[in-house]
Amino acid sequence: MTPPTVLRADDLSLAYGRTTVVDSIGLDLPAGQLTAVVGPNGCGKSTLLAGLSRLHKPARGAVLLDGQVLARLPVREAARRIGLLPQSADAPDGMTVADLVRFGRQPHQGLLRQWSEQDQRAVDGALAAADVATLADRRLETLSGGQRQRAWIAMAVAQDTPVLLLDEPTAALDLGHQLEVFELLRGLAAAGRTVVVVVHDLTSACRYADHLVAMLAGQVVAEGAPREVVTTDLVRRLYGVESSVLRDPVTGCPVVVPCGPAA
């Protein structure tokens, strides 16, 4: 049985001025799964994510959330259903981890609806999930890059949205913390959320994603379960690199070993 789709791009084109960056993409992002978006630099991954999160208005087509046109939803309503962690997130000096994570509850608050017990539970849960509970009172600028990154992820988790979009959340992390973040995201997906991550590392994408979307020049060139999609042909086409695609003896996931530039 295929899980119901909650987020869908329907003939979606996104542009900066006259330059089309995402070109008529049709995409179903499966609910309760971890989707990884991969592709070379400048292929439109981040723009696609911004489009899916309604921050980038479609030049053509639409993003549908549970069948509703996303651009027509009230912004606060949309923010209760789609969370976004952009790539270059920057916080002011002096802000603590807990301060930052509390911002994740903004869409759930109103002029009259102030901080609630539910907000506090969500923040505590997010701090624990991202393994930053012990850092809650530390100032962000005193943390390592990896710790800071996890604090931002905790903020996105605290937003408690059915759909969570993250742009390279593992970029600044060492191997151990990369794994932790992916495990965390897998856990969120297993709990029923739709998680979409832009990832650079193809092997991690294969290892952790249920669903892989490969982009090239603003278009989706391959889509499906990693073990069916990732081939030497795809790697050559995306990155211009010759590679061996092996099978992980333990998990059976594809492992991409680059050999050299394609002829």
Binding site: A50, S53, L55, V75, R76, E77, A78, A79, R80, I82, G83, L84, L85, P86, S88, A89, D90, A91, P92, M95, L100, F103, G104, Q106, P107, Q109, L111, Q159
Partner: peptide, 21 residues
Amino acid sequence: LVARPLAALALGEQVAAGLGN
């Protein structure tokens, strides 16, 4: 009226917008 969205703006335009501001 603007204090809350302005506070979120400290996290950057994209994050603030993503939080429904």
